[in-house]
Amino acid sequence: MASTAGSLQSSSSFSADTMQFLISPRNIKRFDHRDEKCGDPAASREQNNLGLVDYDSLPEFLKHNEFIVNYYRSEWPLRETLLSLFSIHNETLNVWTHLIGFFIFLVLAGYAASIFPVGGAATGINDNPMMEQIRSGNSSIISIPFHDMFFVPTYQTPIPNTPLTSRLSRWPFYIYLAGAMFCLLMSSACHLLSCHSARTSYVMLRLDFAGISGLIVSSFYPLVYYTFACHPFFRNVYLCSITVFGLATIVISLVPVFDSPQFRPVRAVLFACMAASGIVPIAHKMLAFGHRPEAVLTTGYEAVMAMFYGLGVVVYALRVPERWLPGKFDLAGHSHQLFHVLVVAGAYTHYLASVVYLGWREAEGC
């Protein structure tokens, strides 16, 4: 592995001129604690902490993927850890893929709030082409222009101010947006800050797992609440079940051994099983409302979402492609970056489904 690191370093295309704007030092180091005997131990540790190191030089709490060979930050001071948001290392794209996703959902939430204000009625008069196709019975996802997917539909018919309508509130839709943003933000923070210390890594991993659970649980809320708005028994059973499942997953993830590398497949399977439990309310939805174009369209979106999430879980668990070519995907293209992109794609697909659910009930009530 040392020879692999050496060959990567010698073949690096980053020159001093092109890298001078980066905060991270350009050289990759192997930290040998024996160096401390030649000088001040504290000064020696500080100097080594500011370099990028290889996998073999990492403390145990940072050894998560042996196929990522170089460009690690190890026990950096907090200030330099925060500033490394703007530097190049093997976590840079892990941080930014979900940070950009967070801002995408922040914009979507702001736009949705302008159309579906919390506690108010939808009063817009412009129809979205997506909803026109839904009303006409065309539930084909493929036939919807891509650019139309970025907009929230509005309605010509004002929503009557009745007690029933007030109970069909919008909180499930915004809970989902909040859950998605929390997950993406915690993931970015975890990848940015975990190199600071073992304690920081432990806390951030717990928050990361909580964010994933929050995203999965909140994804169920629009599906269940709006589909079964007029069937409170099934609505409450499904909402309570997935909430308890999510809380149990968070509690299990608090066990320290859970974040060890050998439990990577267990983590993937646990979250996959929680997400797969959505098959039950989706199947129920199709049995009860399969004649409705909204039910067909949302199920199509959910199938695409499941494809994105499922592929992400497989990539995450198998650690491909870096498993095939260790050291070649250290900076870009490794499994966790691909996993992040697939998560954002899946979350956005479910946002589209949530828009249809909300529009359905806003327009018709029960």
Rank of each mutant, 00 (worst) to 15 (best):
S166P: 02
N161M: 03
T165D: 14
Y176K: 08
H147D: 09
H147T: 10
R170N: 00
H147A: 08
I144T: 06
L168M: 12
M149P: 09
F151C: 12
F150L: 14
S169G: 11
F150E: 10
M149D: 11
P158V: 05
Y176T: 06
L177S: 03
T154A: 10
R170V: 00
I159V: 14
P160L: 01
T157D: 15
V152S: 04
S143D: 13
P158G: 05
M149E: 12
L164Q: 14
P163T: 07
W171R: 02
P163G: 06
Q156N: 12
L168T: 04
F173C: 01
N161C: 03
V152D: 05
P158M: 07
F173S: 01
I144D: 09
S166Q: 15
V152P: 02
I175V: 12
T154V: 10
N161H: 06
V152E: 07
R167D: 06
H147I: 08
T157E: 15
Y176M: 06
M149I: 07
I142V: 14
V152M: 11
W171C: 02
P163F: 08
T162Q: 11
Q156V: 10
I175L: 08
R167F: 03
S169C: 05
P163V: 05
Y174C: 00
F146I: 10
T165L: 14
W171F: 06
T165K: 15
W171T: 04
F173Y: 06
